[in-house]
Design a protein around this nucleic acid. Structure first.
Lengths: 247, 247
DNA sequence: CGTCACGTTGAACTCGCTCAAAACGGGTGG
DNA sequence: CCACCCGTTTTGAGCGAGTTCAACGTGACG
């Protein structure tokens, strides 16, 4: 199921290279980036609302989520991250964090100092552009989530989340064929699609009985991709994965 | 009510200067940016999903919105823009648009060629950082909207939208005191907070009867700002308006 | 073998939707 | 200046998706 963890530098270079080829010099600069690896347990906050971090992190292994809380304490997950993602890259230019970042599963993360990133950005404008682009893709995903939560009913919402997750896992080679791991509790899924955990349970059952998914433990299988996409109203455009392959 | 329209260059410089002081050279570079002004009617698409624009636009006067549609045709507005905003700045690095941009009121917009922006970014890294930051603030607003639509009930959602709009208008001096214009139909408000227009009507009435807002035509007055903020669970942090004034 | 977190199911309830009709208001043409 | 028109706002009534509360099942783990 898993392609095994890569080094943080490899992950980052691979991701940026999915946009355009990096020069050897650019690659070397990235390779030289000092990082501090850290292993974290599940359900641990990495940074919190109001923090003013001097570093940002690169997810190497495991899954994290960004979340926000209402004043009454209701939680909304606004994004999940998969290995290779930089969940709080925004903190490079926004001093105060407006959301919290937490592990969902046990994780390995690599911390990179802002000043080191800034130094590289100052020198290599194409790396700046690539990192900027990453944050723009994140923003695009947020927009889709607003649509998902605002205008789809729970059934499609869940289907949509599954579609997104599958596509993103495939992109980092963490999904094989039509099967992948979904290591989230139903409560976490509920916080992501803006429903109650009870209803998540019912929606998952409906997805199962309609043959749109099969599941065994945390493993999910999608027997008919087209059918699930249709149920979700899923169009991968918003993930901006294939820069110019269509052109 | 209105401070009158500014030139596109003034708007842009003023906005970027709210983060850090620009040098004279940087200001001159921005002043020299070629722009093409255009006046648009209300309810007109400026760019659409799937477009591959070679320019992006700066809103000079009026209000626009970003929106997405589900496959069944339900519309979700994912953001409003006020004068000074660059609604599709994302297109600078994302080739294909994943949302549409439309005027809500009659608008004046200034189109700026991507190549011109890129030239300036290549030369002035602080302008790059400031523009990048703008897109990060946009992303922060999307995150808050996911929370708003996902975890608040309609009443608070509407209150929250009003709070956001008021704060953002104040920032560009388009709100005086506790009164501002809300030139949206209830249908548009419904698409923004993910409810039906009928329910928007009822929620607005409730806000009125509870004394949280007063309204006359498109003018909205907020008699008790703290009370509305509380009803909304509104914390302006996510708008990232005051970079370091708190520090 | 008990415990604890998570998953599952039922039942009552509620927020918000849909459908439908009526009132309003601002612009246009006569 | 009036009459008309059309989009918008407002209100009512019935309905439905999803919530809350509560109970029970299940599997992992000490």
């Amino acid at each position: 199921m898993t392609a095994g963890p890569h080094s943080p530098h490899t992950l980052m270079i691979r991701k940026l290279e999915s946009i355009f080829r990096l020069s050897d010099e650019e690659k070397q600069a990235l390779q030289g980036l000092p990082v501090q690896l850290q292993v974290l347990r599940a359900d641990q906050d990495i940074v919190r609302v109001g923090d003013r971090p001097s570093q940002c992190c690169l997810l190497v292994e495991g899954y994290t989520c960004l979340y926000k809380l209402t004043t009454e304490g209701k939680r909304q997950i606004v994004a999940f991250q998969v290995p290779g993602d930089m969940p709080d890259l925004q903190s490079l230019h926004l001093k105060v964090l407006d959301n919290s970042l937490a592990t969902v599963t046990p994780c390995t993360v690599a911390f990179i100092q802002h000043e080191d990133l800034r130094r590289i950005c100052a020198r290599y404008s194409r790396i700046t552009a690539a990192l900027w682009r990453e944050t723009l893709v994140d923003a695009s995903v947020f927009r889709e989530w607003v649509l998902n939560v605002g205008r789809r009913e729970a059934f499609s919402r869940m289907a949509h989340l599954l579609c997104e997750f599958r596509v993103r896992l495939k992109a980092v080679e963490l999904a094989e064929g039509d099967t992948f791991d979904l290591p989230f509790t139903q409560g976490e899924l509920a916080d992501a699609i803006g429903t109650s955990n009870v209803h998540v349970n019912r929606v998952l059952r409906e997805l199962r009985t309609k043959g749109l998914i099969r599941s065994k433990g945390i493993q999910v299988t999608i027997p008919d991709w087209e059918k699930l996409k249709e149920a979700a109203g899923f169009d991968p455009l918003y993930l901006h994965l294939e820069q110019d392959r269509a052109a």
